[in-house]
Design a binder for these strands. Structure first.
Length: 937
DNA sequence: CGAATCCGTAACGTC
DNA sequence: GACGTTACGGATTCGA
């Protein structure tokens, strides 16, 4: 494994942390913001980038060689603020106590030290990760050196540098030379910014070449360039990071002296106490008791690279399979020794059955033949009850070595009572999937207490929740990936073809890691009342309900869809011919590229807007606009909508019908949407058309069996009601309390008329504005949607906020809260993180601000419908009804209801949905019944 | 070296 | 604002 050197540009973070964070102080009124920011950043870094060697580099006091070179260097920079100066000493102390070697070298800057160390790292065959907030260091990037900025989660490898700056890393010096650096008071070429610099470098490659061609560049900038010619070499020297500093006086041998040092907890506790960092303090106190048993006991084995105490014996059946982790990782993340074994005899199985029968909780994982939960066959089961110890029980491997294996029927027969026992507690990673696998074998998995995927989702919804990422993030452990075991692409093999020894390494690790992840994440959730509620009362029970819904499936009239496909197909052929005639040639109507050529080159239609890549756009909005003056765009609009219907729905859905059940079984992803919503795939049943009459016909194919009906109940105006609840806006609360049409009420306020006098046009405007608000839409977006001027849109927004001042306040507060703490919350306390809320990148930050507005509403709605699903399923089961939930579409539940239960369900269902929570506005669910989903609306 | 596969882009369906 | 899926078409890898 290639070693990594992690370097932190402490000086660049000093200022950034100081300015980015609010003015934090401890009880003695000492400033603590920069200290908190830096420590927080270092903690995160260590988790995200496990490294063998680390260093935190600060600028030393005094002049550097650049000051000697250029008297004006950094002349415009103000001296360090007093409040920051006060924090320097504790910062150094805390960083050191956390185990980071610190480097400060006189005469050069932190950048130069970092540059030098990256070069040394590469020379030693290592990779280097540089954490900095300073873009100048992009010049250090290469194949082995990556730049990361923890403030905005930006990661720069060579292509990243090209993407961000438009030039490769080796051209960054030239780039900086041309544009100069106002912060350091280094002039470049006057009036030359990033765009021009990139253009010139693309043409001439280097600054030297640009200078050589200075005579050929026209205009005012050309003149400025010629004026700067004599200066540029010096500018270049100033912006170039030194990579050959003599560090011998400041550190021992490279890289050994940059090893991760043991954490000095006593000092940290002192510092955390003094500066009042309670959470970290608690963590230090708690972690000693709660963390995994393998505590590293001092420095002796830490530095002993030659240790062979963790041997790596691979895959002999029935023997111990141990894995060695990088010894440094094990110091960062204790727990290295593993004991994995394959269970292949009845005696072994019996022994383990006894273990799990008496275990407090058992981690369970299945290996299968397919990712499709309804058709996958069980290949093996892995179990773990204590960190580091796990077994794999192969039951259906096809490998032909003379290895014995217990049969699936035998193992399931022995395990069934334990699997189905609700009192035998289980934990897994996405147990919904494993539940399906067991269900495929006729076994009902019960006793699901924990799911690490859901823990991660509740704990930090914006991060990846797959096990490999989580293991790396929380445990610093690189898991064996499925791809490593089974390959990829055409040569991928099925898991039942994997040799049992290899399968054991992989599968047992999964069960082990799941349990260890639980030990890492659960304390964070358990100790937090809100998160705990979301996890225990919403997510875990929802997973159980979802599994049932998925298994129920929904009945589809394949014949009807095929008829529709044929009709649409004929229609498409006609449209195609018309398009060819109008275009004067045949072309692929499905290709935006070919279409663009026909439109904007051959027919010379005006270009309305461009796609992000610079090509002329042909999206719906553009076609609408062009259709006012030309015939072909209209034809294409028709083609597009029909072709979408056919390919995505009428052709696809019949293919998705399960051969055994005759139904379509979607998969609901519970930990994908950062807002807390579900998403649906294979097939996606949450985007079945409804807006157009043609699209709606597809819903006619969603049917109920003989003597049953489709019943659909959806929350009315759920998100606006939530906005009224959260904001407490009086006008809005009153409108909902009085049960008036909310868009009409909004129109009345905006246009200053009585509700009954609101025209249809006014109501339409109000409706668009309401939706815009829910989505945190800008004046620009609103203007686009209404087809009006931006200024006019702005006026409506101002008018709205004047009448609904509570809403305005809610939005301002939400934005502030998001910026201050990095997340917003739903009514129930679900935490929605916004990593880019303080991004220096304008569009990204604004995107995050819009998301901050939208997230509490969308997320609360998601919480409510999940509570509904749990309540409805609970009711169906206690009443032992035959009715079943078959779909969830964000604010709607769809049930399949036998005739005899109809009267009951159509009353009780909306009642249950309306009563899952009491808000400051009434919750209303509207119910519909029909032979098919379309009729049920 | 052609075929298969991967990947990013554009577009569009829902709430 | 949040998603997932389709088709295209260029780039890359596969496999003979």
């Amino acid at each position: 494994m290639q070693k990594t050197l992690l370097l932190v540009d402490g000086s660049s973070y000093l200022y950034r942390a100081f300015h980015a964070l609010p003015d934090m102080r401890n009880a003695d009124n000492e400033p603590t913001g920069a200290l908190y920011g830096i420590l927080n950043m270092l903690r995160r870094l260590r988790l995200d980038y496990p490294a063998a060697y680390i260093a935190c580099v600060f600028d030393a006091k005094g002049k550097t060689f650049r000051d000697d070179m250029y008297a004006e260097y950094k002349a415009t920079r103000a001296s360090m603020p007093e409040d920051l100066v006060k924090q320097i000493t504790p910062i150094h102390a805390a960083v050191r106590a956390m185990g980071w070697p610190i480097l400060m070298v006189e005469g050069v800057e932190a950048d130069d030290v970092i540059g030098t160390l990256t070069v040394q790292a590469v020379a030693h065959g290592m990779t280097a990760v540089v954490s900095t907030g300073d873009k100048d260091l992009a010049q250090l990037v290469n194949q082995h050196v990556t730049l990361i900025n923890t403030m905005n989660n930006e990661k720069l490898d060579p292509p990243g540098v090209v993407a961000k700056f438009g030039v490769p890393p080796e051209r960054i010096v030239d780039y900086l030379t041309l544009i100069g650096d106002t912060v350091d008071n280094i002039p470049g070429v006057s009036k030359v910014g990033p765009k021009t610099a990139v253009k010139w470098l693309a043409q001439y490659d280097t600054v030297d070449q640009v200078i050589a061609n200075a005579a050929n560049i026209g205009g005012a900038v050309g003149e400025n360039l010629r004026k700067a010619v004599d200066w540029l070499p010096q500018a270049k020297a100033l912006v170039t990071v030194k990579t050959d500093c003599d560090l011998s006086a400041h550190m021992g041998t490279f890289p050994e002296s940059l090893i991760v040092l043991p954490q000095d907890n006593a000092t940290l506790i002192d510092l955390y106490t003094r500066y009042n960092f309670k959470t970290w303090l608690r963590e230090l106190g708690g972690s000693m008791a709660a963390s995994a048993p393998a505590k590293n006991s001092g420095t002796s084995d830490l530095f002993d690279t030659s240790t062979t105490s963790h041997t790596n014996k691979v895959g002999v059946i029935g023997s111990v399979v141990t894995a060695v982790e990088d010894f440094v990782q094990s110091t960062l993340f204790p727990q290295a020794v593993t004991n994995y074994e394959a269970v292949t005899t009845e005696e072994q199985l019996d022994r383990w059955l006894e273990v799990i029968a008496n275990a407090h909780i058992t981690s369970v994982d299945t290996e299968t033949t397919s990712l499709d939960p309804m058709s996958a066959q069980l290949v093996g089961i892995s179990l773990s009850c204590e960190p580091g110890v796990a077994v794999y029980i192969p039951v259906a491997h096809r490998v032909q070595d003379d290895v014995q294996q217990l049969s699936r029927a035998f193992v399931l027969g022995k395990m069934r009572s334990w699997l189905e026992d609700p009192d035998k507690l289980k934990i897994g990673q996405n147990l919904k999937y494993d539940s399906h696998i067991f269900a495929n074998q006729g076994v009902t998995l019960r006793g699901i207490l924990h799911d690490t995927m859901l823990q991660s989702y509740v704990f930090e919804s914006h991060r990846p929740h797959d096990m490999d990422s989580m293991a790396l993030r929380h445990l610093g452990h690189q898991t064996i990936t499925f791809q490593e075991v089974c390959g990829k692409g055409a040569s991928q093999i099925c898991f039942d073809e994997v040799e049992i020894a290899r399968a054991t390494e992989y599968a047992a690790e999964d069960a082990d890691i799941t349990l260890r992840l639980h030990h890492t994440m659960w304390p964070h959730i358990e100790s937090d009342k809100k998160l705990r509620f979301i996890y225990e009362k919403i997510e875990v029970p929802t997973a159980v309900v979802l599994q049932k819904i998925e298994r129920n499936g929904v009945l589809i009239d394949a014949g009807l869809l095929k008829t529709q496909s044929n009709e649409i197909g004929k229609h498409l052929l006609e449209i195609e011919q018309q398009a060819y005639t109008l275009a004067g040639q045949p072309f692929n109507l499905n290709s935006p590229k070919q279409l663009g050529e026909i439109f904007f080159e051959k027919l010379q239609l005006p270009i309305i807007k461009k796609t992000p890549s610079g090509a002329p756009s042909t999206d719906e909005e553009v076609l609408q606009k062009l259709a006012e003056d030309y015939p072909l765009p209209k034809i294409l609009l028709d083609y597009r909508s029909l072709s979408k219907l056919k390919s995505t729905y009428t052709d696809k859905l019949p293919k998705m019908i399960n051969g055994n059940t005759g139904r379509v079984h979607t998969n609901y992803a519970q930990a994908v949407a950062v807002t807390g919503r579900l998403s649906s795939n294979d097939p996606n049943l949450q985007n079945i058309p409804i807006r157009t009459a043609e699209g709606r016909r597809i819903r006619e194919a969603f049917i109920a069996p003989e003597n049953s009906l489709i019943v659909s109940a959806d929350y009315s105006q759920i998100e606006l009601r939530i906005m009224a609840h959260i904001s407490g806006d009086e006008n809005m609360l009153r409108a909902f309390a009085d049960g008036i049409d909310i868009h009409r009420a909004t129109g009345a306020e905006i246009f200053g008329v009585l509700a009954q006098d609101v025209s249809n046009e006014q109501r339409r405007y109000a409706k668009v504005i309401n939706f815009g608000l829910i989505y945190g839409m800008s004046a620009f977006g609103l203007a686009g949607n209404l087809g009006i001027e931006r200024a006019a849109a702005q006026m409506y927004i101002e008018k709205y906020f004047m009448r609904f001042s509570g809403v305005k306040m809610f939005m301002d507060n939400t934005r502030l809260q998001a910026k201050a703490q990095g997340y917003v919350e739903t009514v129930f306390g679900r935490r929605l993180w916004l990593p880019e809320i303080n991004s220096p990148n304008g569009p990204r930050r604004q995107g995050a601000e819009r998301a901050a507005i939208n997230a509490p509403m969308q997320g609360t709605a998601a919480d409510l419908i999940k509570l509904s699903m749990i309540a409805v399923q609970g009711w169906l089961e206690t009443e032992q009804l035959k009715s079943k939930m078959v779909m969830q579409v964000h604010d709607e539940l769809v049930l399949e209801v036998p005739q005899e239960e109809l009267a009951l369900v159509r009353v009780k269902l909306p009642e249950l949905m309306a009563s899952v929570a009491t808000l400051r506005v009434p919750l209303i669910a509207e119910v519909g019944v029909g032979k098919n989903w379309d009729e049920a609306h």
